[in-house]
């Protein structure tokens, strides 16, 4: 009986030893203990085993709740003194803040003589994935700073050369223009007639047109008064074209040089007004008298200081 119990005890004690794989161990690890959301998590499973054992790369996808597998790297095997170090690396990432628990990952293996796979488990892992801490008092800034393009001195040099070239061209054109102007000076002589000369010429032109002789009496009186009003503008510096007869006469009274022509001007302008605005048809003698009066007004008020025409030389360019 005691023998039977001893055999059973020896069997039971030797059972777990018989179940353990021989010469194989598996370990999992991550590079940090805490991560930010979106960080790369380098997860690796390292298996140390006999060279005679064949490993099946562990399938981890279904075991990683809350993590995404971004990349599965090729296994790396290293032999040393009959022992092989197999390493399986994964890049994971988590997109929610959480405390992540990676459970023990089963690694399957078998020796050459075995028909079935055996399994060894890695150690479980625990780490933290957290969100970025926000500082509400901090200033708003770009997530990423603007990219700074490094200064290219070749482009700067090109610009400087271009500007210098433009300045040189402009200077060359300016010199050419000045030289041309010096060689071919162009001026325009303007002969500015004295007011009395303009008026006398205009009266002569009007006389030659023979307007009233053709029945254009109103036109004749309008033209003759316009000549005299223009003359007053130039000679006495008053806006006679914009003044009525009485206004013009009233302003003429204030001009010393005009005293001599006041009466004749009054008669002249009033007669013209009658023809222009009252359908008055004057006698031929009145029309002739109007011209005579106009000549009188001009001739009696010639400015002795402005007898000759003024010649103005203008730069025509």
């Amino acid at each position: 009986m005691v023998r039977k119990i001893s055999v059973i005890l020896i069997f039971l004690l030797s059972l777990p030893v018989a179940c353990l794989p021989q010469n194989i161990s598996a370990k999992s690890s991550v590079d940090k203990s805490s991560y930010l959301v979106g960080d790369y998590i380098n997860y690796s499973i390292s298996v140390m085993h006999d060279k005679s054992l064949n490993l099946v790369p562990p399938a981890i996808k279904d075991s990683l709740a809350g993590l995404s597998v971004l990349k599965i790297e090729s296994p790396v095997n290293k032999d040393s003194n009959g022992v092989t170090f197999s390493s399986f690396n994964y890049i994971l990432s988590g997109y929610d803040s959480a405390e992540i628990n990676i459970p023990p990952i089963p690694v399957q293996y078998k020796s050459n003589g075995d028909t079935a796979f055996k399994t060894i488990l890695t150690n479980p892992l625990q780490f933290l994935v957290s969100t970025v801490k926000i500082n509400p008092s901090a200033q708003i800034k770009d997530v990423k700073a603007p990219i700074k393009i490094p200064l290219d001195w070749r482009i700067v040099a090109l610009w400087i050369l271009g500007i210098i070239a433009l300045i040189l061209i402009a200077y060359y054109l300016y010199r050419k223009y000045k030289l041309k102007k010096m060689l071919n000076p162009k001026t325009e002589k303007i002969i500015k007639l004295a007011p009395y000369q303009i008026a006398l010429n205009s009266l002569k032109d009007l006389e030659e047109k023979k307007l009233w002789q053709q029945g254009l009496i109103k036109e004749y009186h309008s033209a003759i008064t316009e000549i005299i009003r223009k003359y007053f503008e130039e000679r006495f510096n008053l806006p006679a074209l914009e003044l009525t007869t009485s206004e013009a006469l009233s302003l003429l009274k204030n001009k010393n040089d005009a005293a001599i022509i006041l009466d004749v001007t009054k008669e002249f302008l009033n007669n013209a007004d009658l023809v222009k605005f009252a359908k008055f048809v004057p006698l031929n003698s009145v029309n002739e008298e109007m011209l005579k009066q106009a000549y009188d007004i001009v001739n009696k008020t010639i400015d002795s200081g402005k007898l000759d025409p003024v010649i103005e030389v203008n730069d025509a360019q």
């Binding site: 009485s246 206004e247 605005f277 009252a278």
Partner: peptide
């Protein structure tokens, strides 16, 4: 006392 208008009347 005029039977016609002159610019002075308008002004």
């Amino acid at each position: 006392r005029r039977g016609y208008v002159i610019p002075e009347d308008v002004r």
